[in-house]
Amino acid sequence: MIEIKNVNVSFKSEIQKKIFGSERVQVLHDISINIPEGRCLGILGESGSGKSTMGRVICGLLKPDSGEILLNGVSVYNSRTGKKNLQKKLSVVFQDYTTSANPRFRIKDVLMEGVRAKERKGKKVKDINSELERLLILVGLDSSYLNRFPHELSGGQLQRVCIARAVACEPEIILFDEAISSLDAHTQVQIMDLLLELKDKLNLTYVFITHDLTSVTYLCDDVMFLYKGRITDYQEVKNLSQTKDEYARKLLESIITYDSEETA
C-alpha cells in the first residue's frame, strides 16, 4: 500500500565547525520498504535510530532529501494532490499523550476534529453525538467522558481517546509513534488487544514504531530493524528466531536473558 523508495533524510547539525557552517547529519540512509495492505509493520530501533523521523516522513510532515513515498503508486511529496491523498488515508497516534490533545478542548472537541476529517472525505455524519459515543465505546470508554478536559483523564484513558480520534477519521492506515511506550505494562496489553480488535473490525493497516520488541511480537506481522538510520533486517515476526542479522539477534537475546532472569 505504501512504498518507500530510497529515502534519505538529514538534519542541519547543531555543532558546526565554522560559524556559518552548514554541515548536515544524515539520519536515514537509503530506506526502501513496502508496507502491504492489511498488515501491521513494526519499526524497531533504539533511541536515535531514526524511527520517529521515519514516522514523520511517512505521515507527510517531513519531506525527505531524496527518495519517494508512494501511496498506491502516487507520490506523496511531489504534488499537493499526493499529500491530500495521504491525509485522507492516514491517521496518527503519538507517544506523548499529554500534548496529543489540546488542553483547552473537551474530549468531544478532540474527537470532533477526527469526525470533521471524516466529513471532509465526503462521508456524511448524521448524528454527531451518537457518532462520538460510538467512538468512545469502540475504545472501551463511555459517553460520560465527553465533557471532560484531557487533564481530567488518566494516561491510558487519554491514549484511548487519541486512538478513538485517529479512528474517527476513518483512515486506512494508522501510524503509531511509540503510542504505548509511556504506559504501564498492564495498560499496554489492554491497548494492544484493543488495536488488534480494531484492525480486524475496520480492516486497517498499521505502522507501529517502538523500541519494545515484546510489543512487536505481540502485535505485528512484519518487523523492520532500524539501526543508526539503516535497515538491518526485515522479517516476518513468526520467522524472527531465524534472523541472521547481528543487531536483531542481539536484541532478541537481550530479551531472552531478561526473561530467564525473571523466572530464575
Binding site: 491530500k84 491517521s91 496518527v92 506523548d96 500534548t99 496529543s100 490533545a101
Partner: peptide
C-alpha cells in the same frame, strides 16, 4: 510542534 497540531496537519485539517 505540539502533537495536537501535528495530528491536525497529518489528517489535513
Amino acid at each position: 510542534e505540539r502533537n495536537f497540531i501535528q495530528f491536525s496537519r497529518c489528517v489535513g485539517t
